[in-house]
Lab assay of single mutants.
Amino acid sequence: MTYKLILNGKTLKGETTTEAVDAATAEKVFKQYANDNGVDGEWTYDDATKTFTVTE
């Protein structure tokens, strides 16, 4: 399945996607991606759209 991440960081905004077997796996990938890019904030997940959002 394809999962999407929306980044609403103070210095980085954008979107990315990943292929993962489940939401938990996608979340690990996205949290590492956000961490690597210096984005740390509040996370939400919408199962209907398979979209994670992180907002600083």
Rank of each mutant, 00 (worst) to 15 (best):
M1D: 14
M1H: 15
M1P: 10
M1C: 12
M1L: 13
T2R: 14
T2D: 06
Y3K: 01
Y3D: 01
Y3P: 01
K4T: 15
K4A: 04
K4V: 11
L5T: 00
I6R: 06
I6Y: 06
L7Y: 13
L7P: 01
L7K: 01
N8F: 13
N8Y: 12
G9F: 13
K10C: 12
K10E: 08
K10P: 10
K10R: 12
K10Q: 11
T11R: 10
T11F: 14
T11W: 13
L12H: 13
L12N: 08
L12E: 06
K13C: 11
K13Q: 11
G14Y: 13
G14R: 12
G14T: 14
E15T: 10
E15L: 10
T16R: 11
T16D: 03
T16C: 12
T16E: 06
T17G: 04
T18L: 11
T18M: 11
T18C: 13
T18G: 03
E19S: 12
E19I: 15
A20E: 05
A20P: 01
A20K: 03
V21W: 13
V21H: 13
V21A: 13
D22H: 04
D22W: 03
D22R: 03
A23L: 10
A23V: 12
A24W: 10
A24V: 10
A24P: 09
A24Y: 10
T25D: 09
T25E: 15
T25R: 06
A26D: 00
A26K: 00
A26F: 00
A26L: 00
A26E: 00
E27T: 04
E27G: 06
E27A: 12
E27D: 05
K28H: 09
K28L: 12
K28N: 08
V29Y: 15
V29G: 04
V29D: 04
V29C: 07
V29A: 12
F30R: 00
F30P: 00
F30E: 00
K31M: 08
K31V: 06
K31Y: 06
K31C: 05
K31W: 08
K31T: 05
Q32T: 08
Q32Y: 06
Q32G: 06
Q32R: 11
Q32K: 15
Y33R: 03
Y33G: 01
Y33W: 14
A34D: 00
A34E: 01
N35K: 15
N35S: 15
D36N: 10
D36S: 11
N37D: 03
N37T: 07
G38T: 03
G38D: 08
V39P: 02
V39F: 14
V39H: 04
V39C: 05
V39G: 03
V39L: 10
D40L: 13
D40F: 15
D40A: 13
D40H: 15
G41E: 01
G41D: 01
E42R: 09
E42N: 10
E42K: 11
E42W: 13
E42V: 14
W43A: 01
T44G: 06
T44W: 09
T44R: 09
T44Y: 09
T44D: 10
T44Q: 11
Y45K: 01
Y45S: 01
Y45C: 01
D46H: 07
D46P: 00
D46S: 06
D47V: 11
D47Q: 08
D47S: 13
D47F: 09
A48G: 09
A48T: 15
A48I: 12
T49L: 08
T49C: 05
T49V: 06
T49F: 05
T49N: 07
T49I: 07
K50I: 03
T51S: 05
T51I: 06
T51E: 04
F52P: 00
F52S: 00
F52T: 00
F52H: 02
T53Y: 11
T53S: 06
T53L: 06
T53N: 05
V54T: 03
V54N: 02
T55R: 06
E56A: 07
E56F: 09
E56Y: 11
E56P: 06
E56H: 07
